[in-house]
Design a binder for these strands. Structure first.
Length: 927
DNA sequence: GCACGCCCGTAC
DNA sequence: GACGTACGGGCGTGCG
């Protein structure tokens, strides 16, 4: 069967123009869109079509303009940057041997529609390559009778639609009803107004209920609500809309599809064009044969994934060839197969493990399958929960997990994962307690390359193996039309899942070798990060109890006060406006009320942030009202409204996720929900903490390090003054004030202590005189004097900071007391602002990072101790310098005596590590 | 309708 | 440009 590919050139040119950064070649000519189109074309040609056409719009009026004079009236002219790329694009397309079709008075869509229909009628297999969803109306599956087919591919997203089923999956209606759908939706780009507020979902729903556009029109009088009114208002123009969105399949063309033969490419012309525009990869392919062959061999006949993202990088130099060889994957569906694999994995002594599920939330996800790899290139996928029409028989959960349990629970068999904490959760919740979780490629990468790299598997595979992984999207789609993993075909699932285990194993080979060569980093990885995985998994599983009634009460109170503030704001402004909109606020305050715009956002706009509003609060009443409103709105939207939604229905508790590779300094981060930024500084905010409670008979206990980062600064700098202050147990900010302002401790004023505190914190963040002046509301010269005075009293600190900057410049990284490194990409940047930023990060990272190391070590020690008392106490939360526990009331004394000891012992510094504790029925009281 | 960038604000 | 590390909500805009 002959194959025809029709490329929607205009669509790709625009999309590439918007999607890619504004690249230029050496001569300064814009090349971004061109680059995108060229990559797309190269990928398309790898499909080896018999016929190809690159179709573009031609100038001139079309039949649609006659039907509807406002058609496309709102379109801005083509940007110059893009216009400049049109001719080069045509040159390249031509040199590739592809015909360019441009028909006067006919839009590209209609040319494509006509050619596609003619070709399919003649029995060809037609692919339309476009980003425009409207073409879905042309999709037609092979009739199995010698008739042709029309499929749609979008090489930018990798999606493919080749049957009514696929169209229905994406749009909720079959190909034949797409025009009805589009008529209802309208198209703002083409200036075709549809039914207001009617998107694809509503349109599909109506068509589903009433059969067709005619059905919907007939049913219009009975459709309720605002949207029903909108529909009735639009009734008259719906037939015209449909005509406008219908792609013509019968325009007269001079030549048929059989004339569009793909010709031999002009290598010399291409070489010149690629060189001129700096397309080095394309150039290499031209000279060296076929770069893409490897991908094609690995995934024969695969039509998708030919977008920009899949350019296959060469394997890094020096990579063990075994780690670059293609993989062979097996789908395990019988007991015999599974037993054979278990024997293989056990014999190997270590293996990579990965789970597939139906959710990203590890506390809700249901297991769909497991994959394993014991040697590079050999991996298996064990499907358990694939459920779709025609799904092959699979092993039962219980049977399979019973067979696997001894292996997974055996601490002597080492398991390797990528972000294994997730898999540990899932398996635990399915009755399997994994032991021997020994290596994690996410954490290996995090420890090795913190600061200058991403650590997700796709990035790691490309960086360390030169390998482009199968993306989840390729298998399951994305957006609203994404299907759960349990509904994807077993061979697709195996290709994806087994690859995950395979790649994890290969990555571990590469990364563990690198760690081996760095004993300090190896120690951070082996003694801190890996043991912490199970600790975090337990903390997350514990969750924290939330008093929903308390949140509801607070939410209602906040709403009432927000309304009051809003009414007062409206009265003051003399008109209504959206208090949540910084843009509208700007217009009101700075244009209408002519208040001075004293603060600018990073983009140079007038800012309405707290500082800006405070600055004009004495000139007008409104700014204060807005500040009041903002404070209330933040609490309600972020906390009282959202937290109840996050309660897990199975456990009745809130389970945050801690990200072990979340912050480059080594700190954890928390999300879904973020429990590390619950308010504490204002009374209203603090009240939120009353909703984090202990169940009856239990208490919450909070233990926090006192001034840990400043103590680390004392340790790192070995400054005698600072060391002495901490040794004496003095209030550190008061002691600093006494030193800087030259008076006895007892004579330090409140303001002096405040200034000293600002200096102490500011220095740790690399703050300069400018920042200190702003913070304290003093002039810059005075701030400079304070800083100079500080450094003269604490010269060790000054020397330490200079040493740190120097080390960062020389080595490109800084390190913590425990040897954790943070790489600083911009430390020697030409751009002064970038460089200054990197220097501040360099100053801060050893302190923040050492504190993170210490509390992580403490968590491991506390977890080990608490394991013996698991019924009586649980660790619930970590907030950078604080650990929160829930304990039986009778156990609290023991906890309060033991935990601070363990926390203090987690670091061996030149100053004491002091831990404060609090006990209460809720988190607020426990402080 | 959705994805994304911006602005803003919360924590340590 | 000016204070480090995070996460997240609401708004406004672009999408071809």
């Amino acid at each position: 069967m002959k194959r025809l590919i029709l490329i929607d050139g205009s669509s790709y040119l625009y999309r590439a123009f918007h999607a890619l950064p504004p690249l230029t070649n050496a001569a300064g000519e814009p090349t971004g869109a061109l680059f995108g189109v060229v990559n797309m074309l190269r990928a398309t040609l790898k499909e080896k079509p018999d016929y190809v056409a690159f179709v573009v719009d031609a100038p001139g009026k079309t039949f649609r303009d006659d039907l509807y004079p406002q058609y496309k009236a709102n379109r801005p002219p083509m940007p110059d940057e893009l216009r400049a790329q049109v001719q080069p694009m045509c040159d390249i397309v031509h040199a590739l041997g592809i015909d360019i079709l441009r028909v006067d008075g006919v839009e590209a869509d209609d040319v494509i529609g006509t050619l596609a229909t003619q070709a399919a009628d003649a029995g060809m297999e037609v692919t339309i390559s476009t980003g425009d969803k409207d073409f879905a109306q042309l999709v037609r599956a092979p009739d199995g009778n010698g008739g042709g087919s029309i499929a749609l591919v979008n090489t930018m997203t990798g999606s493919r639609m080749d049957s009514d089923a696929a169209v229905i999956e994406k749009f909720g209606v079959p190909a034949g009803r797409i025009v009805d759908l589009l008529a209802l939706m309208g198209d703002t780009i083409d200036n075709v107004p549809g039914v207001e507020k009617c998107g694809p979902k509503t349109a599909a729903k109506w068509i589903g209920e009433h059969g067709s556009l005619e059905g919907v029109i007939a049913a219009a009088p009975g459709i309720k609500g605002k949207i029903g009114d909108n529909l009735r208002a639009a009734l008259d123009r719906l037939p015209l809309n449909r005509e406008l969105v219908t792609i013509r399949t019968d325009v007269p063309l001079e030549q048929g599809p059989e004339a569009l033969v793909l010709r031999e490419r002009h290598v010399d012309q291409l070489r010149g064009l690629y060189a001129r525009y700096g397309f080095n990869q394309a150039l290499r392919e031209l000279e060296g044969g076929t770069v893409g062959a490897e991908v094609a061999e690995k995934e024969p006949g695969r039509a998708r994934g030919t977008g920009f993202a899949t350019a296959t990088a060469a394997a890094p130099e020096g990579l063990d060839p075994a780690l670059a060889a293609p993989g062979q994957y097996e789908t395990v569906t019988t007991v015999e197969q599974l037993q054979a694999w278990i024997a293989t994995l056990r014999a190997a002594g270590s293996f990579a493990l990965d789970t597939e599920t139906d959710s990203l939330d590890p506390m809700r996800a249901r297991l769909v399958g497991l994959s394993f790899a014991a040697e590079p290139g050999r991996a298996a996928y064990l499907p358990l929960g694939h459920d779709y029409p025609g799904a092959p028989a699979q092993l039962g959960y219980e049977q399979a997990l019973d067979l696997l349990r001894p292996l997974l629970a055996d601490p002597a068999v080492r398991k390797i994962g990528q972000h294994g904490k997730y898999d540990l959760h899932v398996l635990r919740r399915h009755g399997v307690a994994v032991a021997g979780y020994a290596d994690d490629t996410l954490l290996e990468s995090f420890v090795l390359d913190s600061g200058n790299a991403r650590h997700d598997m796709d990035s790691l595979a490309l960086r360390h193996l030169g390998y482009t992984t199968v993306k989840y999207e390729d298998i399951c789609g994305k957006g609203v039309r994404q299907i759960p993993f349990s509904q994807c075909a077993l061979d697709d699932a195996t290709r994806y899942a087994a690859e995950d285990a395979d790649i994890t194993l290969r990555l571990h080979r590469v990364l563990s070798a690198r760690l081996q060569a760095e004993p300090q980093l190896q120690a951070v990885y082996r003694d801190i990060e890996m043991p912490l995985v199970q600790v975090l998994e337990r903390i997350e599983a514990n969750g924290v109890l939330v008093d929903m009634d308390e949140l509801r009460r607070q939410g209602a109170d906040l709403s009432r006060r927000m309304l009051e503030a809003q009414e007062r704001a409206t009265a003051l402004a003399g008109r209504s406006f959206n208090l949540d909109s910084p843009k509208q606020l700007c217009a009101l305050l700075f244009d209408e009320l002519k208040l001075p715009a004293l603060v600018k956002t990073p983009k140079g706009q007038p800012s309405t942030n707290e500082e800006a509003l405070e600055a004009i609060a004495d000139l007008h009443e409104l700014p204060r009202i807005i500040l009041e409103y903002r404070g209330l709105a933040k609490l309600r939207s972020t906390y009282t409204d959202k937290l109840p939604e996050m309660v897990n229905p199975e456990t009745g508790r809130v389970h945050t996720s801690y990200h072990q590779a979340g912050a480059a300094t080594g700190r954890l981060s928390s999300s879904d929900p973020n429990l590390q930024n619950i308010p504490i500084r204002t009374d209203d905010g603090r009240r939120i903490r009353r909703a984090f409670v202990a169940p009856p008979g239990r208490k919450l206990v909070a233990c926090d390090y006192s001034q840990i980062e400043l103590r680390i600064m004392a340790h790192l700098s070995q400054d005698p003054g600072l060391l002495g202050a901490f040794a004496s147990g003095a209030d550190i900010h008061r002691a600093t004030a006494a030193e800087v302002f030259g008076r006895p401790l007892e004579e330090v004023t409140v303001n002096e202590r405040r200034a000293a505190k600002a200096i102490n914190f500011g220095l740790m963040y690399g703050m300069g005189a400018f920042g200190l002046a702003r913070q304290l509301g003093i002039d810059r010269g005075q701030a400079q004097d304070y800083i100079a005075l500080y450094f003269s009293r604490y010269p060790g600190v000054r020397d330490y900071m200079e040493r740190t900057r120097e080390q960062a410049r020389e080595r490109g990284y800084v390190e913590t007391v425990f040897g954790r490194r943070l790489h600083l990409e911009y430390i020697n940047a030409r751009n002064a602002a970038q460089r200054a930023g990197a220097e501040r990060a360099a100053i801060n990272a050893p302190m923040q990072g050492t504190a993170a190391d210490i509390i992580k070590r403490a968590m491991i020690a506390v977890d080990a101790w608490i394991a013996d008392h698991a019924q009586r106490a649980r660790m619930l939360l970590q907030v950078h310098d604080e650990l929160v526990f829930e304990a039986d009331e009778e156990f609290v004394p023991e906890l309060v005596s033991r935990v601070p000891e363990l926390m203090s012992a987690a670091g061996d510094l030149s100053v004491p590590l002091v831990v404060d504790t609090g006990i209460g029925n809720n988190w607020d009281e426990a402080h």
